[in-house]
Design a protein around this nucleic acid. Sequence first.
DNA 1: CGTGGCCGAACGAACGTTCGTTTGTTAGTG
DNA 2: CACTAACAAACGAACGTTCGTTCGGCCACG
Lengths: 190, 190
Amino acid sequence: MSRLTRDDIIAGAGRRFATHGYHGTSMRDLGDDLGILGSSIYAHVGGKQELLVAVIERGAGFFAASARRAVEARLEASATLSLLVSGHIDVVLDHRSEARTYLSETSFLEPLDQARVSHARDTYEAVFVDVIARGIAEGVFDRERDARLSAVYILSVLNTIDRWFDETGRFDKDQLSEDVYGFVTKGLIG
Amino acid sequence: MSRLTRDDIIAGAGRRFATHGYHGTSMRDLGDDLGILGSSIYAHVGGKQELLVAVIERGAGFFAASARRAVEARLEASATLSLLVSGHIDVVLDHRSEARTYLSETSFLEPLDQARVSHARDTYEAVFVDVIARGIAEGVFDRERDARLSAVYILSVLNTIDRWFDETGRFDKDQLSEDVYGFVTKGLIG
DNA sequence: CGTGGCCGAACGAACGTTCGTTTGTTAGTG
DNA sequence: CACTAACAAACGAACGTTCGTTCGGCCACG
């Protein structure tokens, strides 16, 4: 086992935070996972709270990057939404720890950090709202639907995927993306 | 300030667990909320873990009761699903603390309790799966949709509602139920 | 007048963090 | 190519605090 970098520490913290929660994780626990003493972590980071910030910021970055890619493709509304869905699923499954920590431990940040993360999340959600509103305006989505509520519904589905999806199953990520997109656009009735 | 009952303690614990998490809550915190010392809680309850079990069991009970009511109405598939949706929303909004704790702190239960709660959750989910499968068989829902996946999607939407829905807004619970049901059956396209 | 809710002190364990020291790698010098 | 100064990672003990929990005594209510 070679020596560790700051990134190794953050990755380990993400794993622990995602599974045991921020308050359920001690520096000694984290050290055990990494094969060093809890106190040795302080050679890399200022403290436990700084680890949480780093993990969550990393998670936020993945989502922001995914949204940017979807928007910059400059496609029609439905295709953009499809990109947003598959991009979100990629983030949630390829960066499970950071995504999960970002999604469920944000309330344990200090107020200033929490405000910044909340703003990032609002910005990300706004991308979904905008593309849905565009789709409604173009007539491709139902004029009766509320763009904001629909975005919240869709994000609820996407944010929960990592809690049940088994990557090793007979269903792969692409099929999942397509199925989710089909569900949120056509619903149970089809 | 009159004297407290065991139920008061559990209700207070639910509130704290829901907002600060199980590990983010100390017995002294909880005592402060209730207006007594942390140590005094032990006059009502065996310990902290027992509080978590009680809160979660209460939450599980609400969901189970809702599912029972929906099934015993013996309606056609789509009407039953509508009852399941509105019943779930009632539980999540009328018993926010217990529902939230049940939904997100279950992993901090001891293995035996956790297994029992997991089983209860599977049973509840199965009610959704069954009614959707029935709807598919009757031809009222799309034959292309997978009942199990659809149930997970719908439950994802329902379980997230308490994180964003503002009861004081211009949108009431009944409108919300109808909107959610419309979304999951007809989707964005309509 | 006894039973039970509550207090307040106390317990040992675990917490996040600090600190002086040891260790292993790297860079520079002759 | 040997030697060494410098640096950063990791150790291990210790810090003050907070944790969950116990216990004896008090006081109000049934």
